[in-house]
Structures are given as structure tokens and as C-alpha cells.
Design a protein around this nucleic acid. Structure first.
Lengths: 136, 136
DNA sequence: TTTCATATGCAACAATGTTGCAAATAAAGT
DNA sequence: ACTTTATTTGCAACATTGTTGCATATGAAA
């Protein structure tokens, strides 16, 4: 789907930084870090704008943010085109060898029974190890 | 168990920063952030030493590090006294209301089937929502 | 107590994330 | 197409978090 269309569908203003970020993510199979998005965006990149943009895009349900580790944050487009803000339903795999992060869209997060009084709205699962390429 | 005994059991040198960190964690039911440990340690606290100490303690299997979010990292003592470095087998709950983190020791992380070629040695599960106190 | 490898703690740096504010711009109305 | 208005951008400045090098201090063993 076209980046402009995505923003329209989610009622978010069409601005060039937002379009650039979405397009950068669309060119990649895997989630991208800020640095990786920056590279793809070239000159027209501002750190502050980036942070505010990804926050907007996440709140709009267009992308999701994955914290692989405290120093490794990546972003990925949501697959569900229509879906509004809901946390990802799949687990993520982080390869500690090549530092790539993979959305395992086919592997759904399982339900966990919480103790009395606890309520949840999000469940983040990050599995760490070696990816298929590094295991060759 | 005594902090000195813990260090001895894991073949780690007994130094005062390490003892202070362990003792700080022992006084708390829940995992603590760097700032929370610092408060409990008082004057004899150095940031660099803290970072290197928690790394040593984690590698020795004495504590584990929990990344609740990219800006929220906490530390907790391992329950298994004998256990050497193995990642926590339980899930963690992060209350987005009061920012407390809870080890749900009774809730074990479930196994996830990985795609061909992927191998894992750690699985981090962080459930986010409201804790029992904030839900009252 | 002496020795030696390890750990501490300081300075300096690097990376990541936030806030305030003036200029720019998207979207809606004229 | 032009004007208006609320939102967004992008700069400066700051705050927080994590790392590296190195001289001094210290734990553990001889």
C-alpha cells in the first residue's frame, strides 16, 4: 500500500518526514532502528522530528516499536492495514550475533494467566539467540 | 541468605559495591532500577562501578536484568541460589501507572516454536498494564 | 605481610531521549 | 488560488543512560 494512503486511512496529516519514515520501513523486510531509517532517509533527517513522528505513527496504529534490548529499539509497519492502536500479536526474535530483529508474524504471543488484581493491555515477547542466516 | 555467602557461592570477589548492590536488592520485594539502588546505597555509589558490578553479577548468575522499556531497566536477585547463568524462567509485569516492575515467579515463560534455522537461549516476556495496587 | 591480578572510581566521551519555541506547512474555509 | 489556523517541523539546549581508558585501591593467595 502507498505511504500516503496509509496516513490517510489513519487520519494522520501527510507530512514528508512521516512519509519518508514509512517508505524507509517499507523497503525493509525487518524492523529498522533509528540509525537505519536515518540512512535510508538521507539528508532530510532530524532526530527530534524522527522521535515525534514515530510516536505519532505508533499511536495511530501504523507502526509498532520493538525494544530488543535497552539500547536496541526498532520500528516496523503493522501488517493489519485497518487496525488501530493495538499492540503486536506476534513475538520478535533478536539475533545477538548480527543484531538483526525479525518479526515472527506466524508466532503469536501466548496468553499468560495473571495474579488476582493485575490487568494487562500489552505483552512483549523477545526471543534472543541466533537467526537462520547466522546459524549456517 | 547472606550477601557475602552469595558472592562466595558464585566465585565472585567480595567487594563492597557488590555487597551493597545485593543488599539493596534484598531489602526490596520488587526489582530495582539504578536510581533506586543508588538511593539505598547512599554516598558510596559510583555510576560506572554500578554498571560494571551489575554486569559481573548477572554473568555470575546472581541477578537478572529486566528491560521493562527502553528507558526502564531493573535488576532482581535470582531465586535459584545454585543456578549459574540462565535467563529468568518467569515473566515480568510492568505497571505503566506506578512504574513498578514485578517478578511473576509463578508465571513461567512458555515455549515458542521457532522457524527453521533459528535457535534461542533466552526469552524475555514483559506484560504491561495495571498492577494490583493501582487497580484498587 | 608481600605480591599480583582484579576491581574501583574519576574524567571524558558517546548515544539516546526530552522540552521550549519560532518558523514552516497541511488542511479547511473563502 | 488565497487566507486562515492549528499542527508540525527543526533548531538549540538539556537530561538521562551507557561506555572506555587509566591510575589508584583492594581482595585473595602465597
Amino acid at each position: 500500500m502507498d505511504a500516503i494512503e496509509i496516513l490517510q486511512n489513519h487520519q494522520v496529516k501527510k507530512t514528508s518526514p512521516r512519509l519518508s519514515i514509512i517508505q524507509a520501513l517499507q523497503t525493509s523486510q525487518n524492523p529498522l532502528s533509528e540509525g537505519e531509517v536515518k540512512e535510508k532517509m538521507g539528508g532530510l533527517y532530524d532526530r527530534i522530528t524522527f522521535y515525534r513522528s514515530v510516536q505519532t505513527l505508533e499511536e495511530a496504529g501504523i507502526i509498532h516499536r520493538i525494544v530488543a534490548d535497552n539500547t536496541v529499539v526498532k520500528y516496523a509497519l503493522n501488517h493489519c492495514e485497518k487496525g488501530h492502536q493495538h499492540s503486536p500479536d506476534h513475538v520478535h526474535f533478536y539475533c545477538t550475533q548480527c543484531n538483526s530483529l525479525v518479526c515472527l508474524n506466524a508466532v503469536k504471543t501466548q496468553a499468560y494467566e495473571l495474579p488476582e488484581g493485575f490487568t494487562s493491555n500489552q505483552c512483549d515477547v523477545v526471543i534472543k539467540g541466533m537467526c537462520n542466516k547466522c546459524n549456517l
